[in-house]
Amino acid sequence: MTAPLDVPGAAEEAQPEAVAQTGGTRDRGRSLGQIAWMRLRKDKVAMTGGAFVVLMALVALFAPLIVSLLGHPPNQWNREMIDPALGTPMGPMGGMSGEHLFGVEPVTGRDIFSRIVYGARISMLIGFLATLVSVVIGTFMGIIAGYFGGWVDALISRLMDIFLAFPLLLFAMALVGVLPDAAFGLQDNALRIAILVFIIGFFNWPYIGRIIRGQTLSLREREFVEASRSLGASNFYILRKELLPNLVAPILVYSTLLIPTNILFEAALSFLGVGVEPPTATWGGMLSEAVDYYDSAPNFMLAPGLAIFLTVLAFNLFGDGLRDALDPRTQS
C-alpha cells in the first residue's frame, strides 16, 4: 500500500528537513528500505552504534541470566567487602576483582556490575515507552497541523512553542513530589514508571510534532495527494493511507534520536532522587550516590556514568547514520 515514490527530487532543496520521501528514481527496482539499508551498512560508525544498542537491549532483556552468570543479585549486600569504620570498599580499585567485575558500592557492598546490568532495564524501558508516547502524540498533532493548515496549524504550532518553553525538570520533580504513592490504579514503582513515562513523553512530543508538521506540509502539495483528493477521498483516508506511510521514515529516524534524550532525562530524574524507587538499580540513582564518594571510590561513579554515556552515544550514532542513510541530500 505504500505510495509510489518516483517523484522528481526537486522538492528536496526547498525542504531542508526533508527526509526520505524520495529517492526511488535513481535506484529503480529497489525499495527505499533496501537502499537505506545498503547505505547504512557501509557506515561503520553507525553500525557500531546500532550493534551497541542491540547489545544493551539484550542486556536489559536477559539481565537475570547475565547476572546469574557473571555477578551477584543486584540488591544483595556484601558487607564483608566494606571497611566497617570508613564505609568504603576494601581492596584496590573499589573492590574490583574477578568476583566483582566493576567493584562494589560503598556502604552496602552491592555488586556494581549487576546493578549496571539491571539499571539498563529501567533506562531502556522508560526511554522506549516515553518515546512511544511522544511519537504517538507528536505524529497525530503534526499531521493535523500540517495537513489542515490555517488556524489549526497556528494553534498547534503555538502549543508546541509553549511546551518547549516549560521547565520540564522542575515540572517532573513537582509532580513526583505532590502525587501520592498510589493513584490511578497503580502504585509504587509501577506508578513511578508510569509518571516518568508520561512526563517525559508528554512534554517532549513537540520535537516529533514539529518535524512531522514540516514533512506533512510538503507532502500535501504532492501530486499523489492531489490525485487522491480529486478522486474524492476523505481527509481521514488521505491522512491514513497517503500521508502516514510516507512519514514512517522520519518518524523512525527522530524516534531513534529521541530515545537517547529520554534516557538522559530519566537518568537526570533518578539523579535528583525523583526517579524509580530504590533499591531498584538505576544509572542516575547510582551516580547520585556516587557524589559523596567521588574522591574515594571513582569506579562507583565511572560505571554508571559510562553506561549512560555509551548507550546514549550509541543511539545518537545510529540515529545520525539512519538519518544520513534515509536522506539523499547528505550522501557523500
Binding site: 537526570a268 551516580l287 545518537n316 550514532l317
Partner: peptide
C-alpha cells in the same frame, strides 16, 4: 556528539 551524549552530572563529577 560525545558532548551531547554525556550527562552533565557525570561530566561534573568527573571534573570535580
Amino acid at each position: 556528539l560525545a558532548g551531547v551524549s554525556l550527562p552533565i552530572f557525570f561530566t561534573g563529577l568527573v571534573s570535580l
